[in-house]
Design a binder for these strands. Structure first.
Lengths: 264, 264
DNA sequence: CCTTGTTGTTCGTATATAAGAACGTCGTTC
DNA sequence: GAACGACGTTCTTATATACGAACAACAAGG
């Protein structure tokens, strides 16, 4: 269980993350500077990553880009497990009935990882794609996921107290967040009002199996189409979808490795 | 341009690929045996990968699984570039008109990498998801992509001559493949009859920009719904979509790094 | 034309990493 | 209950890797 820092491994991940974080590619020297690693040390790593097609080196630009095999590898995280497909089916039924987009995600440390969406019948297509992360407190399903933690746990997750704003509407500090989380625990529903995307409101629920919160799901609605009456409909449908999904996960419990436990 | 084999880098990729290739997770000892690497050497690598959440270690099972960050990283390959989104739009229009599924992919060495699909209005949902690879010769859009290569180039790609069958219908050897590729070059259309999925037929086209084949696109139709008359419709729509997509790519040429060049 | 800036590449050696054996722990089997 | 076989973990030193400097190639600027 020892926490050994293997330098080379960390470097490879740093390299990949750095290159992934920019659209326009990165040169060897750029990497050397931003990671504070000698060019001569980076060179063999980059060559091997490029040979294995986890990177691409464009000679004309002298820049490295992400390679296909990074994509292939990453998608194995979801392609190996068909639980997600079953969950998408449930979500798509709700999508069909409401015409609004559904999101599904899990917790990854302090962020929510967005795993799946259902927007076949949505009037407005959202730009975001699965595989993105957002601060958990800024989204509806993120807050649903955080609602499993008591105030002191939230404080140790966010020792600063102040929360980084995603939009002007994002909850600003841990104490306000805890008030909201308490509300989620009592009502079973989380709400988001333009806190991660301006103009979008959400209702969200936590997916619990064996008393453990494993995932969050939300329905995202443009403000101008959001009414109290529709909110009731959303909550009914979400609640129903929630229990279906909980049954699906419970039936395939062994397949559920997404974001694992929070121990260690 | 030196091809140095950096052992540690190769090992990390081997580790990730091995773990990604099985559903049920892998133990340290399993990895040690299958990769022929001492356990003591693997241990620090696995610890670091797990700390960075590219792997998850389930203590109760003593097994390693892929972690979320592998997924997050891999999706940056497509999330950073919105050309794909525009291409999907074009494909979805064809999907809406035909009710059949469209596929889009690029070449990765001898395989086709499946990048996007449009199946919103399809009667049958296909199980496969983006991020998968298939032998290029076994699919319609794969053959469209291979049609850029002359017989001798194909022979050097597949020196064995015999091709591994994906289904009983898959083309069996390089010479037959070359005959088909010649037909694709003259007609501009590639066909697939259950060669990668039994019961599914495809028509496919190559996406060319500046005289270079960059991608392939196909429409996949269940055999029983495939008629000569509809085939004509598919070809017209595909051809139209092709030129739209070529214009999109030409307009964002710099964004197109997918699978890069084949030099080096 | 020579300078000064990039870029990537190649060396030799100091150093950090990998290997193998030994160890601790838990289950299973006899 | 003792012995065996798994698992992961810890050690030490032989070895392979990383460093820094020097190198080559090219572009921009004086």
């Amino acid at each position: 269980m020892g926490s050994s820092d293997h330098r080379t491994t960390a470097r490879i991940l740093d390299i990949l993350e750095t290159i992934a974080s920019v659209q326009d590619g990165v040169s060897l020297s750029d990497l050397s500077r931003s990671l504070a690693i000698p060019k001569s040390s980076l060179h063999p790593l980059l060559c091997t990553l490029a040979e294995r097609r986890y990177l691409h080196y464009l000679q004309r630009e002298e820049r490295y880009y992400l390679g296909e095999n990074t994509f292939v590898l990453g998608n194995k995280y979801v392609n190996n497990h068909d639980v997600l497909e079953q969950i998408k089916d449930v979500m798509q039924q709700v999508n069909q009935k409401t015409g609004e987009t559904l999101y599904f995600g899990v917790l990854s440390k302090r962020d929510v990882l967005y795993l799946a969406k259902a927007d076949l019948h949505s009037q407005f297509r959202v730009v975001s794609n699965p595989g993105n992360k957002l601060p958990a407190y800024s989204t509806g399903y993120g807050k649903a996921l955080l609602s499993q933690f008591m105030p002191d746990q939230i404080h140790s997750l966010y020792p600063e107290g102040e929360l980084k704003l995603v939009t002007p509407q994002t909850v600003r500090n841990v104490d306000q967040l805890n008030i909201q989380l308490e509300g989620i625990r009592t009502t079973g529903f989380a709400y988001e009002k333009g806190e991660s995307t301006t103009g979008i409101q959400c209702v969200a629920v936590a997916i619990k199996v064996d008393g453990q919160v494993l995932a969050g799901m939300s329905i995202a609605v443009p403000e101008f189409r959001y009414t109290a009456q529709r909110e009731e409909q959303f909550k009914t449908l979400l609640d129903d979808a929630r229990s279906q999904i909980q049954r699906i996960i419970a039936g395939n419990r062994s397949q559920w490795i997404y974001s694992g436990e929070y121990n260690r």
